[in-house]
């Protein structure tokens, strides 16, 4: 017998697959693009949720990783398309348009950035942590705007999506399938990590640091590991997002982006593995249905968000699958 949460997970993933397939048959490519957007935002949210839901680390600066992933894509593809090198000394480093390499670089660099930001930020906690993560993202935002080499505020356009073996990635449905496959992979990894010894220790540290310390674990190290994994996942999402748009700009670093990623997590349900995916899908749905209603649709969006925080704690998952979380 499946639990309500498992049923909801299955329904969500099926819906995310069936909508674009239906749109493909009906020749509605834009619907596919929209769903791809939801899937990518979902991955970004899963990243944040790993730090936030599991480790209790409220980061308002995940745009830093999202943006870095985007720029990894932009810079590598730009150099490949113009046949120039990223650097020529001490060794020659060319660009690339192979998605797999771009993903790897995005993941590694985001993890490295998260290690740096995390090591500094985790010296603080609570509101200080929220604010210092925000400040680091702002720093990168201003850097990206004023650094002229890669377009500054104009951003960087690449005109064709990057390559993935055997696929025509410019075809919306094929690119969607790539993203959907990555979503499944990330979900599986996060699910496994949440149940691993590390995940359990992290969850325990969030609830009671003293007890974990008594068991010989170092909470700070657990948090930092979680933050690095979290940043890496969000960085991957950033690379995919830039590829979806064939464009990257400093907007990806802005604090509104951080806020939106947080909204995906909270709309869906903090701490639920599939929560951010549901949250991102709902957000996209709201954006496009409200956007058609009026120029002032942000008012409605704000009211709905407010309603969720005040009256529907636990987001969609809290509403439908009930309060209790399996491993909490």
């Amino acid at each position: 017998m499946m639990s309500k949460e498992a049923l909801l997970n299955t329904a969500l993933m099926a819906l995310l697959l069936l909508v674009p397939l239906g749109a493909w048959f009906a020749d509605e490519p834009f619907l596919i693009t929209l769903t791809t957007r939801a899937v990518i935002f979902g991955i970004a949210g899963i990243g944040l949720n790993f730090a936030l839901g599991l480790g209790g680390l409220v980061s308002l600066g995940h745009a830093a990783f999202f943006g870095l992933g985007g720029y990894v894509m932009g810079v590598l593809a730009y150099h490949a398309q113009t046949y120039t090198s990223l650097m020529t000394w001490p060794f020659e480093l060319p660009g690339t348009t192979a998605m797999t390499i771009i993903w790897l670089v995005a993941i590694c660099l985001s993890a490295l950035l998260a290690l740096g930001i995390g090591a500094l930020s985790l010296r603080t906690s609570g509101v200080y942590f929220i604010m210092i993560t925000l400040a680091f993202a702002q720093m990168l935002y201003y850097f990206a705007i004023s650094w002229p080499a890669y377009g500054g505020e104009d951003g960087l356009s690449i005109y064709v999506r990057n390559r993935f073996v055997g696929l025509n990635t410019m075809d919306p449905i094929q690119f969607f399938m790539v993203c959907y496959g990555l979503l499944l992979l990330v979900l599986g990894l996060v699910w496994a990590m949440a149940r691993s010894a590390f995940g359990l220790a992290l969850g325990a540290a969030r609830q009671n640091e003293e007890r974990v310390r008594a068991l010989g674990q170092k909470p700070q190290r657990l948090y930092l590991t979680a933050f690095v994994i979290s940043g890496a996942i969000t960085g991957l999402a950033g690379a995919l997002f830039a590829d979806l748009n064939r464009f990257v700009s400093p907007t990806m670093f802005s604090w509104q982006t951080s806020g939106e990623i947080m909204i995906f997590v909270i709309l869906g349900g903090v701490g639920r593995v599939f929560g951010p995916v549901a949250g991102a899908a709902l957000f996209i749905l709201l954006e496009y249905s409200l956007g058609g209603l009026s120029d002032y649709w942000h008012v409605y969006l704000g009211a709905i968000l407010l309603g969720v925080v005040l009256f529907a704690r636990g987001g969609i998952y809290g509403l439908i699958a009930g309060r209790e979380v399996a491993h909490d």
């Binding site: 693009t33 957007r37 919306p172 748009n245």
Partner: peptide, 20 residues
């Protein structure tokens, strides 16, 4: 359509205009 002055939204809208 309203691009909200966001480049990524503008790209989405142009995809929508062209594709749908």
């Amino acid at each position: 359509e309203d691009d909200q002055r966001k480049p990524d939204v503008a790209v989405q809208l142009s995809d929508k205009m062209i594709q749908s």
